[in-house]
Design a protein around this nucleic acid. Structure first.
Length: 589
DNA sequence: GCCGTTTTCGGCCCGACTGTTTTCAGTCG
């Protein structure tokens, strides 16, 4: 954990601690401060280094008291008040809070009655069926808690792509600098851009494998070493997953990359197909078999290295080509119909990374964002966007200062003013408009008409019946001046299942009403998922890829959304915000 | 504990659902 992460965690724990004791207002203050620190990361410590407590107080949500605590942490590595609090309440608040539905009051109950301090204690208590006997708890609460624990653990051990990718990039960067390394990259689920990652697979080519291994096990992000061999090592990373490194000779890089990129099902299908054509495929290359009939044993790596019957190994493209097919992009290697399409040379021309020109969902300090409209715009310009839509929340979201029609109008004036100063960049006046239970919208038709862009989304009534939910969403889509349906399923990976509705009916309604479906790039959301993207593409409806940014750094999530689009076989024409500003405005009109 | 072109003191804006209860506490967004 970086110091900023530690600080964010401590502030979060203070928030829960105060909340469980019924303290007013402090919980929210600590919560906001925690989020503010999380959003800014290492910038917080940088600010402190430059300007001490005074600089810390400049950050939103941080006043005298919290600035002093941060100062104490940065100077001494500890916060006294926090240590005292932990003595009084030695509970892993941070860890337990990952369980959905387990809030501060319940945590206090569990500790007071059953001395539950962490996940392990909780499991024991659940097993002994002791939880239902706590006052105000019952059979159902116990079952629900067990289910939520299981749901969290099912996703546990896997981390979201968006948070693993920077670590993997940094490992590749550092290993590439090691003397003797010719090439280094990641393969596996990261290269395929799966939404969650179980471990990091790295490949390097070098004539001096040992020096690469030495460097690998002593990388700063490594916590401990499982094994260290001549060509393969495995380590535990500080972020809580493993990383494996394989070192091979440079000549066989393509074969190794193909082999370790997977996925498993894709490779099985590909190897079966190779066998049927009289080849065999392993991590050292594609080999022609001597006899027509396939040998039951896999050729040993040593025979592979000697190159007996070697047909291809330098690049992936060479291997796929010798097998008579196009090379499927890593993102679509899932062992379904991609090999068939590759053989027919009918693979789609996937949306290239960097195609998105406009980002159409983001938040400012007008609702729950951390930066002003201008700051968000400047950050978007820096990333090369041509246009953005400012889509703060609507009034139903009162707890985060959602906008009513009046404030929306005021915000529009601010945007008009800002737009006058931009050249080749435009802020669209937008809203993230709540869909009410009955499918009506939170912002009036008259007010929507004044906006450039309207996104609609579900933030309430997650548990309607499938029929009601479908009806509600379609009714919302049929309203005038609606352009995009934001994070359609509302799922949060590892935390919350999506809402239940008839997706195909909604896709059809989207097409009919000219409403785009969003690919929300925020790592926890990744919503729509790759599977639904493919359904949208097949149905001929349109997509938009947005970040849902609440701060500047979030704007960089767009590549994650592009990855989802690629995994869903989307091309440039399927995604509306690949259009130029002029084209996009024309579409809106 | 934070915040301030309505305040340096006095606000901090809600509403639904669930599970436990016969009136409400806890959680979420």
């Amino acid at each position: 954990m970086t110091k900023a992460q530690t600080l964010a965690k401590i502030l979060f724990e203070f928030s829960y601690f105060h909340e469980m004791h019924g303290v007013a207002f402090k919980p929210r203050a600590y919560q906001l401060a925690s989020e503010s620190v999380t959003a800014r990361g290492d910038e917080v410590e940088d600010a402190w280094r430059k300007g001490g407590i005074k600089a810390l107080k400049e950050l939103p949500g941080i006043g005298q008291n919290i600035a002093e605590k941060a100062d104490e942490l940065f100077r001494t590595g500890k916060i006294k008040e926090y240590e005292q609090m932990k003595k009084q309440f030695p509970v892993d608040i941070w860890g337990l809070s990952r369980i959905e539905g387990l809030g501060p009051k319940h945590m206090l109950d569990l500790y007071k009655h059953l001395k539950v301090k962490n996940i392990n204690d909780l499991k024991k208590a659940l097993k002994a069926h002791k939880i239902k006997d706590i006052p105000r708890w019952g059979e159902k609460s116990e079952i629900k808690l067990l289910n939520q624990l299981n749901l969290m653990e099912a996703s546990g051990g896997r981390l979201l792509l968006g948070y693993v990718l920077p670590v993997a990039d940094e490992m590749v960067r550092q290993l590439s600098k090691v003397k003797g390394v010719t090439r280094c990259t990641y393969a596996g689920s990261i290269r395929r851009r799966q939404e969650t990652i179980g471990d990091i697979d790295l490949i390097a080519t070098s004539k001096n494998a040992k020096s690469v291994m030495d460097a690998f096990v002593s990388l700063p992000m490594v916590e401990s070493v499982h094994e260290k061999g001549k060509t393969r090592s495995s380590v535990r990373l500080k972020i809580g997953i493993d990383a494996d490194l394989r070192v091979v000779p440079d000549e066989v890089f393509g074969a190794t990359l193909q082999y370790f990129t997977g996925d498993k099902r894709h490779n099985v299908l590909l190897r079966e197909f190779a066998l049927s054509k009289g080849y065999t495929l392993n991590e050292y290359g594609l080999y022609k078999l001597a006899k027509k009939k396939a040998t039951p044993t896999t050729p040993s790596p040593s025979s592979g290295r000697r190159g007996i019957g070697l047909v291809a190994c330098k690049t992936e493209e060479e291997i796929y080509e010798k097998l008579g097919m196009e090379t499927p992009a890593p993102e679509i290697r899932i062992g379904e119909d991609e090999i068939e399409a590759a053989l027919k040379h009918k693979l789609p021309n996937l949306l290239p990374y960097g195609s998105v020109r406009g980002d159409l969902q983001m938040h400012s300090t007008w609702s729950d964002g951390t930066l002003s409209i201008e700051e968000m715009a400047q950050a978007a310009i820096k990333l090369g966007r041509s246009y953005i839509a400012m889509t703060d929340h609507s009034k139903s979201m009162a707890f985060i200062n959602g906008l009513d029609e009046k404030r929306l109008k005021q915000q529009g004036k601010e945007i008009d003013k800002l737009n006058k100063n931009f050249k080749g960049f435009r802020i669209l006046k937008g809203i993230e408009c709540d869909i009410h239970k009955d499918g009506s919208l939170d912002i009036s038709a008259a007010a929507r008409k004044e906006l450039d862009f309207v996104g609609i989304s579900v933030h309430s009534h997650f548990h309607l019946s499938r029929e009601e939910q479908t009806k509600r969403i379609i009714k919302a889509m049929e309203q005038p001046n609606v352009n995009c349906f934001f994070h359609p399923t509302c799922r949060l990976i590892g935390k919350r299942e999506g809402i239940d509705f008839d997706m195909r009916a909604v896709i059809a309604a989207a097409k009919k009403n000219n409403v785009a479906l969003e690919i929300n790039s925020f790592p926890e959301r990744s919503d729509l998922s790759d599977r639904w993207v493919r359904a949208v593409v097949k149905a001929g409806a349109k997509l938009m890829i947005n970040t849902d940014a609440h701060t500047a750094e979030h704007l960089e999530f767009i590549v994650l959304g592009e990855a989802i689009a690629r995994r869903g076989w989307a091309t440039k024409k399927d995604v509306l915000n690949t259009k130029t500003t002029k084209e996009f405005m024309a579409w809106l009109a």
